[in-house]
Design a protein around this nucleic acid. Structure first.
Lengths: 226, 226
DNA sequence: TTGACTCCCATACGATCGTTTCATACGATT
DNA sequence: AATCGTATGAAACGATCGTATGGGAGTCAA
């Protein structure tokens, strides 16, 4: 009702469809798929109850669509951060710089307090109760980003065993996800968050370097305070 | 119907109540509070639909009760692992030993494949959508365990700044939670899991030691390959 | 035997859910 | 002007939800 009742056909349709996606994203993030009713979504979007089935064919497909809309850009954004940082970073502290840049990029959607907060919650939910088509989440976001980050770390620290790096990337991301959960519940002060990121970077950089040959002695890559 | 229809009054009642708790725990863990119906629970427990309201006063209180039943023993079990390991461990690798013991204790409920798997999922859910009374989860499990582990690490590595240790404990637990999620979805082979635990221990031990004085130079506690 | 109490059952109630149906209004096309 | 496809609206459908109700079976004390 904010715009003219119908506008031109195509334009009006797009508006309703997008308003549904926006409301759905917010509500699905807040309460989950099962606990969000179509009536809630359409009411918040200022649309008719039947609009969801008309535009998307059902509640579940609206859920998938509201997810798909974000997955691609999030993936490209994160990978771009990685390759960009890798391109212009050299020196003994390159690993820390890379991890810091990725961490900030990773948590950025959460800090802007805008619609970004939603996506992070949707991701956490999807990790617990997968509702997306098989492999969509892993294939379109998690897998590529993980691979890109591991590759970048290996470019910086070529002496580390690839297997160790892959696991360390998991450890690093696990901490970021955990911090994201914490921030999501109690939106901490910006400075406090920066300190937390700095901790994760230092903690993880040491962890990345903590292994040269898996079984026996510790890493001694001479890059350790060169 | 497995036992005699009623048995003695007290005994029969206890049986139904406990069967409800068991089924509720499993189903709440699998699908969440909202997505689990009272009818499902009572059907699986072989009880009447009204039994939930009779014994617990409602669905939500059954949820809380099925949680409370486990929180205390889990907390004591984890703290006991910490203090016990701390008591009988000395030497340069004491930190690794402590972390390994805690990690195995932490993931143990997941590996037994019995009812333990449930609790882990319930915890992950509770971290996303808190349904328990305010502070119950944090106060009865998370807080005490976190404090106990931080204290133990400080006893082993007294030179580390307490602030850093507290954050590092978070980082360590974040990795365990992440691994728990992974194991929960795709129950990996036992050996694969052991290797993953070993990685987390080494990664985290390095992270714990990665800081002597927060801003400037790295930790050099001389314990690093003494 | 009676009454009180505990536990369980079958059933019903009101609410809410996702989805479907049918009717209408508008712009574009012929 | 007549027609068609698109977008929306109001209303209803059948299903399922959590909870409430009333009664029956069992035990125990008086």
């Amino acid at each position: 009702m904010l715009t003219s009742p119908h506008a031109t056909a195509g334009e009006g349709a797009r508006a309703t469809r997008d308003r549904l996606l926006d409301s759905a994203e917010r509500l699905f993030a807040q309460h989950g798929l099962a606990a969000t009713s179509v009536r809630e979504i359409t009411a918040e979007a200022g649309a008719n109850l039947a609009a969801v089935n008309y535009h998307f064919g059902g509640k579940h497909q609206l859920y998938v669509e509201s997810f798909r809309r974000r997955l691609g850009v999030l993936r490209e954004q994160r990978i771009a951060t990685i390759t960009e940082t890798l391109r212009r970073t050299r020196g003994a502290r390159a690993l820390e710089t890379l991890l810091r840049a990725f961490a900030e990029s990773f948590l950025d959607p959460l800090l802007v307090a805008e619609g970004g907060r939603c996506l992070m919650r949707m991701i956490q939910r999807e990790m617990l109760d997968p509702e997306l088509p098989e492999g969509m989440f892993e294939g379109e976001l998690v897998g590529p980003v993980r691979a890109s980050l591991a590759e970048a770390v290996l470019a910086i620290e070529p002496d580390l065993p690839a297997d160790h790096v892959r696991r360390a990337v998991e450890s690093f991301i696990a901490q970021l996800l955990h911090l994201a959960r914490t921030l999501d519940r109690a939106g901490a002060a910006r400075s406090e968050t920066a300190a937390h990121i700095e901790h994760i970077v230092r903690f993880s950089a040491a962890g990345f370097r903590a292994c040269a040959h898996p079984p026996g002695r510790r890493a001694r890559t001479r890059r350790d305070r060169g």
